[in-house]
C-alpha cells in the first residue's frame, strides 16, 4: 500500500495490468474502482482547476491594484452631476473632455511642468557629475582614509532625511536663496543644489565600477591615457545602464518631490508639479465643494508623463529600483 502512495505522489504511474509485478496493488486499484486513466484524468483536472483559481486570484488582485488609476481616469471624464450622484457608476454616461480644457485654462500645468523639468535636469546633471567622479575615486583610486570616508558615506544613509531638512532650510536661507524678493534663479538653486549629492547612487556606481577589470585600466595606461580620460572614455560607457537608471530615478524623484519645494519657495509660480497639484483646490467659491472632475483631470495630467517614462524605460526603472530600493 505504501508503494502505491509513493508512486502516486511521484506522479509516475505504472499500468499494473500490463506489468503485473504485484497482484495486491492491482487488486487494491481494482477494488477502489479506479483505473490508471481515471486517476490521470483526475490529476489533470485538479491541476487545471488550481491553475484557473490561481489566475483568477492574481487577476483579481491585479485589478484591485490598478483600480485607482481606472477610477482616476473615469472620474476625470465624468460630469459634476454624475460625480455627486449617490450611486456611483463604473463608467461615465457622458464623456466630459471639457474637464481637461477647463484644467488647462485654470491650472497652470505648463508652468509647473517647466519648473519641474528645469529642476530635474539641473539636479540630475549635478548628481551625475559628483556621483561619477566620487564613485571613480572610491572604486579605482587609492588614498589614505578611503575606507574610513566611505564608511562615513554609508552611515549617512541610515540618517532620516528629516534631520537634514531642518538645518538645510536654515543653510539655504543663510545663502540668501529664501525670503522676500526671491528671484526665479534663487528658487531653482534652493531646489537643486542640496540634491547634488546622493550617497546611495555613489555606492551603487562604485559597485558597478569595481566590476570593470583592472586590465582595462592598465591597457589604457599602456596607451598613455590619463585617469580622467579613462574614466570618461571607458568606465562611464561601461556603466551606462546604471547611469540611465540613476537619471530616471532622479527624474522621478523630482517629479514627486513636494516638501522641499513647498518650504523653500515663496512664490507659487516657482513651485513644482506636486505642489501645484495639491495647491489647486478647484473648490467652488459658493458651496465650498471640490470639483472632483477637474481635480482628477489635473491628476491624470501629472500621472501620464510618469507612465510614459515607465513604458519606455521599464527595464532600467525596475532594475534600478530592485538594486536601489530607495525612491527618488
Amino acid at each position: 500500500m505504501s508503494e502505491t502512495t509513493n508512486s502516486l505522489t511521484m506522479k509516475t504511474y505504472i499500468d499494473f495490468s500490463e506489468v503485473k509485478i504485484n497482484n495486491n496493488i492491482t487488486l487494491s486499484l481494482a477494488d477502489s474502482g479506479q483505473t490508471v486513466e481515471a486517476m490521470r484524468k483526475r490529476e489533470k483536472v485538479t491541476s487545471i482547476v488550481s491553475t484557473i483559481i490561481l489566475y483568477a486570484v492574481v487577476l483579481f488582485l491585479a485589478l484591485l491594484m490598478i483600480f485607482p488609476f481606472y477610477w482616476m481616469i473615469i472620474t476625470s471624464l465624468k460630469s459634476k452631476v454624475e460625480i455627486d450622484y449617490i450611486e456611483q457608476t463604473l463608467y461615465p454616461s457622458v464623456i466630459m473632455w471639457s474637464n481637461y480644457v477647463y484644467v488647462f485654462q485654470t491650472f497652470d500645468f505648463l508652468q509647473y511642468m517647466g519648473n519641474t523639468i528645469i529642476v530635474a535636469i539641473f539636479s540630475t546633471i549635478g548628481t551625475l557629475i559628483t556621483t561619477i567622479i566620487a564613485a571613480f575615486a572610491f572604486a579605482r583610486l587609492q588614498f589614505k582614509g578611503r575606507e574610513a570616508i566611505f564608511l562615513i558615506f554609508l552611515m549617512t544613509m541610515m540618517i532620516p532625511g528629516e534631520m537634514m531638512v531642518i538645518s538645510n532650510y536654515i543653510t539655504v536661507a543663510s545663502f540668501g536663496w529664501i525670503g522676500n524678493g526671491q528671484t526665479r534663479v534663487e528658487a531653482y538653486a534652493a531646489m537643486i543644489v542640496p540634491f547634488w549629492i546622493s550617497v546611495f547612487y555613489i555606492y551603487l556606481l562604485r559597485q558597478n565600477f569595481k566590476q570593470i577589470p583592472n586590465e582595462l585600466y592598465l591597457a589604457a595606461k599602456v596607451d598613455g591615457k590619463s585617469d580622467w580620460s579613462f574614466l570618461w572614455k571607458v568606465m562611464v560607457p561601461l556603466a551606462m545602464p546604471t547611469l540611465i537608471s540613476i537619471t530616471i530615478l532622479k527624474f522621478m524623484g523630482t517629479w514627486n518631490s513636494y516638501v522641499w519645494p513647498n518650504l523653500v519657495t515663496n512664490d507659487v509660480d516657482f513651485r513644482l508639479i506636486s505642489n501645484g497639484l495639491r495647491g489647486s483646490a478647484f473648490t467652488d467659491a459658493d458651496t465650498g465643494q471640490t470639483s472632483y472632475g477637474y481635480q482628477m483631470a489635473a491628476t491624470v495630467l501629472v500621472t501620464v508623463p510618469l507612465f510614459l517614462l515607465f513604458i519606455f524605460f521599464r527595464k532600467y526603472i525596475m532594475r534600478g529600483v530592485g538594486r536601489a530600493g530607495i525612491k527618488g
Binding site: L61, M65, M72, Y292, M296, T299, I317, K327
Partner: peptide, 23 residues
C-alpha cells in the same frame, strides 16, 4: 502581471492620494 503590480510604484504620491480621497 509583474509590470501591472509594479505600476503603483511609478506614481506621484500626492496625485494618487487625491484619487483615494475621491474613492
Amino acid at each position: 502581471l509583474q509590470t501591472v503590480f509594479f505600476l503603483p510604484y511609478v506614481t506621484n504620491a500626492i496625485a494618487i492620494g487625491m484619487v483615494f480621497s475621491v474613492m
